[in-house]
Amino acid sequence: MRKGQYQFVTGFLLAPMALYLIFVIWPYLQTIGYSFTDWKGQSQTFGFVGLDNYAALLEDNVFLQAIWHNILFLVFIPVITILLALFFAFMLNAGGRGGAGGVTGIQGSGFYKIVYFFPQVLSLAILAVLFGAVYRSDQGGLLNGLLVKAGLVDAGRPVEWLNEPSLVLWCLLAVVVWHGVGFYLVLFSAAMQSIPKEIYEASLLDGAGRAQTFFRVTLPLLWESVQTSWVYLGITAMDLFVLVSTMTSGQFGGGPDHHSEVMATVLMRNFLYFGKSGYACAMGVVMLLLTLILSVVTLRATRRERIEF
C-alpha cells in the first residue's frame, strides 16, 4: 500500500514536473547565467564578461528612459484604475438607497458589470488594432472625428495622438485603464458582497452618508483586495510589451524617438533585432528584480491591521 502510493505520486507528478522544469524553471535560471556573458545567440560559443552587461545597462540611455516610463506607468495605472474601479464597485453594490433603509446596488448593476468586464476577455492584439483606429491621426480616427465634429480640434490639423511625444504615454495609459477597470470592479464587488449587510445598516442608522460609509466602512474592509490589485496592476505596468510594440512606431515600438519605450520593448529589440542575447538577458534580470522589489515594497508599505468580520 505504502509503496504503491509513492509510485502513484511519482507517476502523477512526472509529466507536469518535467514540462515545468524544461520550459519554465530552466530558462529562468539560464537567463540569469547568460546575463553574465557576451552571448550573441547564433552560436553556442560565448565568453564570460562578468557584470559588463549590467554596467552597459546603466549607460544605455534608451533603457534608462524605458525604466522611467515604466515608473510613470507604475504610479498612474494603479492609482487611476483602482480609484475608478472602487467608485464603480461602490455605486453598483451599495450606491442604491431606494428601499426603506436597505443597502442595495444601483438599478441595472448587473448590466453594468457585464459591459464593464467585457474588455477583459479581449486579447491585447485586438485592443491594439481597435485603439490604433481610435487614435488615427486624421479625421478617420474616432477620437479626432468626434473632436473635429465638436469643434474642439481644427479639421486641418488633427491631433497625432500616437506620434506626439508628450501624448503617447497618456494614450497608452488610457487603453490600459479602459481594459482593466471592469476586472478590478468585479474583484472589488466580490469583496464588497462578502461584507455583512448589518455593518452597512448600522452605519446608516448612525447617520453616515454615502461618502462616510465608503471611507469609514467599505474601504478599510476592502484593504486586502486593494493591496492585491496594486501588486497586479504594478506587474501589468512593468510589462506593457504588447500594447507598446504594436501601437507605437519603430521596430518593436517605442516611438516616436523612444518616447514610449518600456523595458520589455528594449529587451525584445536587443534580442530579436540586434541579436544581443546576453545583454537582453541582463535586462530580463533587471525586470525581475524591479518586479520583486515592487511586490515586496507594495505589500510592506500598505500593510495594515487585518480586520476580521
Partner: peptide
C-alpha cells in the same frame, strides 16, 4: 511552492533561453 512560485516572474525573464530550448 515550486509550482505556484512561477507565477511571480515575468515571462520575459525566460524568453531568450526558451527560444533556444524549443
Amino acid at each position: 511552492f515550486f509550482f505556484v512560485g512561477g507565477a511571480m516572474f515575468p515571462v520575459f525573464l525566460a524568453l531568450v533561453p526558451l527560444y533556444f530550448m524549443v
